[in-house]
Design a protein around this nucleic acid. Structure first.
Lengths: 150, 150
DNA sequence: ACTTGCCTTCGACCGCACTCGAAGTCCTAC
DNA sequence: GTAGGACTTCGAGTGCGGTCGAAGGCAAGT
């Protein structure tokens, strides 16, 4: 069974090495349709979280005859992309906005691009801030023994 | 009045330029004792947040005859250091632990150092993750027009 | 004397992003 | 046919980090 094979594949994967891009998923997804547990294993999200993402409209997921979720390639790619955005601290509200724009069709591409670029700017600021704060921590570590303000 | 002078100084400061270190505070603090509004202006925190930090034990702040908070150089330095730790996403619980160690005396220095170094490691991981996520966003921006998983 | 305005304490509330539990369904294996 | 386990929906709960509002106090300016 392809699903079992996928789970094995994930478990025996050199932990954390590939950053799991949307492109990677296209090659990796042997099976056309994945169950929620597979997607969970693949993304590191919990099934609870995956259901939550669907509930709030971030992904549409089909159902099989028994009413169970079936993630196709497209849905998996979407989930992976969402997790990347979340990893970069994009708020869920913004992601939802982006997804809605995608639904509205190709004429919203400029706005989508603007959204991503605004987010990119936020991330760069965050990176700079983190590095600045890190410098302070480093300073504190290296000068340990001084009593100032600690 | 030194307090007014300080507020003026802050308002007319070239916005955001100096990263406001504990060391800087030692030079900047003309007045020996600052009111909560001054510390708020200095740190960018709200008075509410400053009271909150005191409430949960992150800083001890003296009171004047009228019962109002009086931040001395030490307290200000502490608040500034705490904001740096928060800027680097150190959880409040860890900061509280650190502060408690400081209270317990100099024999806890090794543990404090360990705490800071563990945090430093976390920050480095976070930096790497952020950069990885940023790369995905960048890729998405540059290849805009492709339909994959978006 | 009185208004203005920042200050005090206290507890309640908020937004975010999950996270969980209950109650029930459905497939698989034995 | 029946036990097990993963699945479903729904609503409620959690943890973090603030954020706010009410009710009252004190001090300076007019």
């Amino acid at each position: 069974m392809t699903t079992e094979r996928l789970r094995d594949l994930i478990e025996t994967m050199p932990t954390e090495l590939p950053p799991l891009t949307v492109e990677l998923v296209r090659d990796l997804d042997i099976a056309e349709h994945l169950a929620i547990a597979d997607v969970a294993a693949l993304t590191g999200l919990s099934p609870h979280t995956l259901r939550y993402y669907e509930r709030i409209g971030l992904v549409d997921v089909a159902r099989d005859a028994g009413g169970r979720r079936v993630y196709d390639r497209d849905a998996v790619g979407r989930v992976v992309f969402i997790t990347r955005l979340r990893d970069s601290d994009m708020p869920i509200a913004s992601i939802a906005r982006y997804v809605e724009l995608v639904k509205q069709g190709p004429e919203t591409e400029p706005e989508r691009l603007a959204l991503l670029e605004a987010h990119r700017a936020d991330v760069l600021v965050r990176l700079r801030d983190l590095q600045a704060a890190l410098a302070v921590v480093d300073y504190k570590i290296t000068t340990y023994g001084g009593a100032c303000g600690s």
